[in-house]
Design a protein around this nucleic acid. Structure first.
Length: 550
RNA sequence: GCGGGCGUAGCUCAGGGGUAGAGCGUCAGCCUUCCAAGCUGAAUGUCGAGGGUUCGAAUCCCUUCGCCCGCUCCA
């Protein structure tokens, strides 16, 4: 199912180049290893970006683990319960065999440089002449079996033309035999899979299955997207380990430990945030597809019968959550995957998607909410031979003594998995605003909860006792709100310039000490988004901020 | 991985064989009672990197790295 692209674009297109320039200028994002020329697919966060991302991570932690779903009741009518977990980037290699990551995308692939098409190296069949001295195929086709290759040749006239067959005689799919005329008369050919080593050694001499021409095929290449390393001092296959491509598996493999050690009862969730690594073929679009990235994943375990309800619950809540931190309006959509799009084990998956400037009018994924069934626990149970089922004492038949018989089952799992770097990027893109009518046209309209700078205190002019008052107010705000983000103060240069700097950094509130402060004990509050000012009592500033920073 | 475009000051860019430039920002001083205001001054670059041609290369050639766009990939 293609992403919905019909939603009206209500805001003017934002320039990604301008956003990237602002990110560098104000210290949100730097290129990793910048002074050495950068390294493809890696980005670092500057002071404001690091704080922005921390605020996003903290918000997730607060709303998913400490106070899950804002204290709402789940579909079972009970308070939602979650616990945190922190697991290693490097796990036992069998974890990734069990999860399917090792096998999932490990086939050698060949590209046709001319047509840009790609196929699995072991799916190339060729027509070989009889006689043992001829080892190169006369032509090739892509098919999963040789029988299928013969049938393709027999049934597809344009394919025959492409690969050079002028006339076709008898064919025998089962025996892998074909009579064909390549211009030198009718000959018998045997159809066999082109051996991968042959392809590796002689890629240039093997005709392309798409054009019939030689010289356009690459040698087979591995496309495993996992990073690997070695443990210990000896580097060999036995000591090879993988850097995790997702944090989720760390949760599944500790399911039993958490159940045994924390008195949790199904349904409950386990949350885990941290770095993951994917060796993306093409890192692209600023930080959107980085090779090192941070995830915030919750695995919510529940009884199979209730899993659909929980799936809908988390899907809807996650959408609401992103809205609550500032991603409102048409740029955010919830997209339910079509059946053809689902992983083989998934019963349902939705993506929270954001319309980034580089994806518009399409959308890019921020978070996937997947109903994973019992796939993961079952896989790990099979591979580890450790029982990962759950004994639910509140289910089963009612016994004469009034208690329940209990039920043993492998819980189903709902996985809301968010990308924190993508989230931070979406927050920046959404906040980025150009308003030519303002003296400082570029500003970031961050929601106060995620804004890296929470407030600034300015003396209107750097004299007449104002700096001293500003300093005292700054101390007060810093003591109270310094743990939530940066508090700034600055007595220098014109007030307009200082406001403009705060606009670009996305600081929501500026408090200014002026002449009236000295006589009436009041300050002005400037709203970043409108520039409007109101006057409040000096001793009400802390309360004012406390209400608005959440 | 393929094709195209681009790398010059913190940012945006000009300069295309002969002394490294502008605007904005930054910093300092003065001034300033609310929006990048004004005045004065200052700092900042191996012109992405490496090699070649040349008396001389930011400029021409080759290689390489990075970024952007389109394919491809995204288990």
């Amino acid at each position: 199912m293609p992403p919905p692209q019909e939603a009206p674009v209500t805001t003017p297109a934002k320039s990604m180049d301008a956003i990237m320039a602002l990110c560098k200028r104000r210290g949100f994002v730097y290129q990793a290893s910048d002074i050495y020329g950068g390294i493809n697919g890696f980005w670092d966060y500057g002071p404001l970006g690091a704080q922005l991302k921390k605020n996003l991570r903290d918000a997730w932690w607060q709303d998913m683990i400490m106070n899950p779903a804002w204290g709402r009741k789940g579909p079972d009518g009970e308070r939602v319960r979650c616990v945190p977990l922190e697991t290693c980037i490097i796990q036992h290699p069998k974890v990734w065999e069990a999860s399917g990551h090792v096998a999932g995308f490990n086939d050698p692939m060949v590209d046709d440089k001319e047509t840009k098409q790609r196929f699995r190296a072991d799916q190339l069949s060729g027509l070989f002449a009889g006689g043992s001295d001829v080892i190169m195929p006369r032509c090739t086709v892509v098919a999963s079996t040789t029988g299928e290759a013969v049938e393709q040749i027999a049934s597809d006239k344009s394919l025959r033309k492409t690969i050079g067959i002028r006339n076709l005689g008898q064919v025998n799919a089962e025996a892998g035999l074909v009579e064909a005329d390549f211009g030198q008369g009718m000959q018998a050919w045997s159809v066999r899979v082109v051996p991968v080593p042959l392809l590796r050694e002689n890629a240039a001499d093997i005709p392309s299955p798409f054009t019939g021409k030689k010289g356009s095929l690459t040698e087979p290449r591995q496309f495993n997207l996992m990073f690997f390393s070695y443990t210990g001092a000896v580097f060999n296959e036995e000591s090879k380990v993988f850097l995790r491509p997702e944090t989720a598996q760390g949760i599944f493999i500790h399911f039993k430990n958490v159940v045994d050690s924390t008195r949790v009862k199904v349904p409950f969730g386990i949350g885990n945030t941290g770095r993951s690594f994917r060796n993306e073929v093409t890192p692209r679009n600023f930080t959107f597809r980085s090779r090192e990235f941070e995830q915030a994943e919750l695995e919510f375990f529940c009884h199979p019968d209730e899993s659909q309800d929980w799936y809908r619950f988390w899907r809807d809540f996650r959408m609401e959550w992103w809205k609550s931190i500032g991603l409102a309006g048409d740029n955010l959509v919830l997209r339910e995957h079509g059946k053809d799009e689902l992983s083989h084990y998934s019963i349902g998956t939705s993506d929270v998607e954001y319309r980034f400037p580089f994806t518009a009018p399409g959308f890019g994924e921020l978070e996937g909410i997947a109903h994973r069934g019992c796939f993961d626990l079952t896989q790990h149970q099979e591979h580890s031979r450790v029982k990962l089922d759950y004994f639910d004492q509140e289910r089963g038949d009612l016994l004469p003594n009034g208690s329940r018989k209990g039920e043993r089952y492998i819980p189903h799992c709902i996985e809301p998995a968010a990308g924190l770097d993508r989230g931070a990027l979406a927050l920046i893109c959404e906040a980025y605003t150009v308003d030519p009518s303002r003296p400082s046209p570029e500003l970031l309209k961050f929601h106060p909860r995620v804004a890296p700078i929470k407030a600034a205190v300015f003396p209107l002019v750097n004299k007449d006792g104002m700096p001293e008052v500003a300093e005292r107010l700054y101390d007060e705000l810093f003591a109270r709100f310094g743990r939530t983000g940066l508090i700034e103060t600055d007595p220098k240069q014109s007030i307009g310039k200082r406001y403009a700097r705060m606009d670009e950094a996305g600081c929501p509130f500026c408090f200014t000490i002026d002449g009236e402060t000295l006589t009436a004990q009041t300050v002005t509050v400037r709203d970043r988004d409108t520039g409007a000012q109101e006057r409040i009592a000096l001793d009400k500033v802390t309360g004012y901020l406390a209400e608005r920073l959440v």
